[in-house]
């Protein structure tokens, strides 16, 4: 293990990282945000899901430093009287959970399909790639609106809230797999011609072992870059869906639904309900994207631009 750490310290990645101020700053910001999200129950001052902590009388209290601010609510409260800071922290947790979950799903589907179509080629390849084309020709919003409408009608809006997280992961995951499949397929096509693949065949390995054990590790660097960009995309997709009222319900808000819920009050003066979650979303996405750009530049300057 210590050998791996030593190796990492000598790697070009670490060398480039130490010299890139933007990358260091985004890494620090991202680490703080992820830490906050993971340990939300310890950091948030209230549990926003617990009705005991909500009092309609406390609604729309401005942030602490403004006139009428309450020392109990650092960033004020939302329209339902929940502490905005705690709700944001919990909301970011949901946003990140959906983002990462969707990317895991995308990558599992996309990498498997990409490996298979790149390695076997022929009809299988044509079939999967045409499927990817068809998939990409639908906007994910359209697909999501379609399925959300059906699902909400089927299980009722109340119950929809309970299954919203896995549902959003599925919708975003399924709509974006072609990105992975195409990237992986392109790398596999290049790797498959190299002699080590032939050597592996000569050694008597089966197709599965060659694909996963030998070709897949060689396609990891584009996958890594794509994954960072896709996490940001997925978080954004989720925010967009929630903003349209198709995502997380207001009782368990993500950043997107928080922005949406505050939108009605923005002209009545309660701007903080929309602005704070909005800024948090921007900072989160920006730090992920900047890190993704850094990785892309280091690992392969010729790669796909997100």
């Amino acid at each position: 293990m210590s050998r791996h750490i030593d190796n990492f310290k000598q790697s070009y990645l670490w060398y480039a990282f130490k010299r890139d101020k933007v990358a260091i700053a985004s890494m620090i910001v991202l680490c703080i945000l992820v830490f906050t999200a993971v340990f939300a129950p310890l950091i948030a001052t209230y549990n926003p899901y617990d009705p005991i902590n909500t009092d309609v009388m406390n609604s729309e209290i401005p942030p602490l430093w403004m006139e009428g601010g309450d020392s109990a609510f650092l960033m004020g409260t939302d329209a339902q009287g929940r502490d905005l800071f705690s709700t944001m922290v919990y909301g970011m947790r949901i946003s990140l959970l959906i983002g990462v979950g969707a990317v895991v799903l995308q990558s599992v589907i996309g990498i498997t399909i990409g490996l298979i179509s790149g390695y076997f080629g022929g009809k299988l390849d044509s079939f999967f790639m045409r499927m990817a084309d068809v998939q990409l020709s639908f906007s994910y919003l359209m697909v999501a609106i379609f399925f959300t409408a059906i699902l909400q009608a089927a299980v009722g809006v109340g119950r929809f809230g309970e299954i919203a997280i896995p549902f959003l992961i599925l919708v975003i995951g399924f709509s974006q797999w072609p990105q992975y499949a195409r990237t992986v397929r392109a790398s596999v096509l290049a790797e498959k011609k190299k002699e080590y693949v032939e050597a592996a065949r000569v050694t008597g390995f089966g197709a599965g072992r060659i694909m996963w054990g030998h070709i897949f590790p060689n396609t990891l660097s584009p996958i890594l870059v794509l994954s960072t960009i896709q996490v940001a995309n997925a978080v954004m997709s989720e925010a967009a869906l929630s903003f349209l009222g198709l995502g997380m319900p207001i009782s368990r808000p993500s950043l997107g639904s928080l922005i949406n819920s505050g939108f009605e009050y923005i002209f009545s003066g309660a701007w903080w309900i929309t602005i704070f979650p909005g800024v948090l979303l921007v900072v989160l996405i920006l730090s992920i994207n900047l890190l993704g750009d850094f990785l892309r530049d280091v690992l392969n300057p010729k790669l796909y631009k997100g």
Partner: peptide, 22 residues
């Protein structure tokens, strides 16, 4: 089971026949 086990093969270019990431 025979290939690579009872009959082995060595290739031309040693730079290319080993997997670079393992």
């Amino acid at each position: 089971n025979i290939r690579g086990n009872r009959i082995s093969m060595i290739f031309q270019d040693p730079m290319m026949t080993l997997n670079p990431v393992l």
